[in-house]
């Protein structure tokens, strides 16, 4: 095993230029993956925050009984797409209305003190964990007994969910292209490695080396290129990400309230294992494919 490990590393060294090219491409792939992932994670966090702000409001028919309201509540509770909901009484609705529209002129609202103009406006505010399910929920709620009206912000919901899937598609597309490029380059590197060592391989086979033994150094080579090629961009990304969120927080304090970056530790908890597995996996698959094609042992 140690022999093969040593030979694999020697291959990389003997084959410096190609190994370097492969490591560089792999690094670029993983780097871009990391960038996309970081952007993606932050975006979906933002979208999620925005989603949480999109509510469906359910109003009741006039003089609805308490039993019916609690029956509706039970139905809402059962729905899996509901993240949270709460009941707003007519009084709370009026208080909130007063706060929003009579700010500083509270005395004007006093005239209504005995007669709540929003007497019939008790309602449920429902927040979803997945905006794309909003239409479905609205339809369901409209069909319930005792429900007068269901309000929703359809445009916001649709835009957010479209945007979410668009990010997903771009992300997947770029990653697929990058993986293809990386596999192609590893292929090239290992092919050159094989042709450089053709004589040695021929001798090994004549002496009685097993297929596995002949192949192992090339697999080691591919896996190592993958490992180094994913470690370098991870370190780079770590400092870049940390630097960037620090910089944005410092320079653009005014948007600080609007944009909440996902903390570096949270991003890298997923990014590190995924990148390493991706890098090593690409290296392994790339060299295996090449060996199958060029090394008939």
């Amino acid at each position: 095993m140690w022999y093969n490990l040593g030979q694999g590393l020697k291959n990389i060294w003997r084959n410096k230029l190609f190994s370097l090219a492969s490591i560089a491409t792999m690094s670029a792939c993983i780097f871009l993956f990391g960038v996309f992932y970081s952007i993606g994670v932050n975006f979906s966090e933002m979208v999620q925050t925005a989603e949480e702000g999109v509510a469906v409001t359910v109003f009741f028919t006039e003089g609805v009984s308490k039993d019916k309201v609690s029956a509706v509540e039970q139905e809402i509770k059962k729905r899996p797409e509901v993240a949270k909901y709460h009941f707003v009484t007519a009084e709370e609705a009026w208080e909130s209305f007063k706060k929003d529209y009579f700010k500083g002129k509270e005395e004007l609202a006093e005239g209504f003190s005995q007669d709540n103009p929003l007497a019939n406006s008790e309602h449920f505010e429902i927040y979803l964990n997945d905006v794309s399910k909003q239409q479905e929920l609205v339809k369901f709620l409209q069909g319930l007994d005792g429900v007068r009206e269901v309000h929703q912000s359809e445009v916001a919901a649709n835009t957010l969910s479209d945007f979410n899937s668009l990010i997903g598609y771009i992300f997947a597309g770029v990653i697929i292209i990058l993986i293809a490029v990386a596999v192609f380059l590893i292929n090239n590197t290992v092919t050159v490695g094989i042709s450089v060592r053709r004589e040695e391989i021929a001798i090994m086979k004549l002496i009685g080396a097993k297929d596995k033994f002949v192949r192992a150094p090339f697999i080691v080579e591919g896996v190592f290129i993958g490992l180094i090629g994913s470690a370098i961009p991870l370190v780079l990304l770590f400092f870049l990400y940390q630097g960037l969120i620090g910089y944005v927080a410092e320079k653009f304090r005014f948007i600080g309230g609007m944009i909440q970056f996902v903390p570096v530790a949270d991003v890298f908890r997923i990014l590190v294992p995924v990148s390493l597995v991706l890098g090593v996996g690409i290296g392994y698959v790339g060299s295996r494919m090449t060996l199958k094609k060029h090394l008939k042992v």
Binding site: E199, E200, I203, K205, L206, I207, G208, A209, K210, D211
Partner: peptide, 21 residues
């Protein structure tokens, strides 16, 4: 095919052009 390496271990081979590394 898998047993060919084992078989070859019982035959030493020497070539005209030595074939050393």
């Amino acid at each position: 095919r898998k047993k060919v390496p084992n078989f070859r271990r019982d035959i030493g081979v020497v070539f005209q052009n030595f074939r050393l590394l």
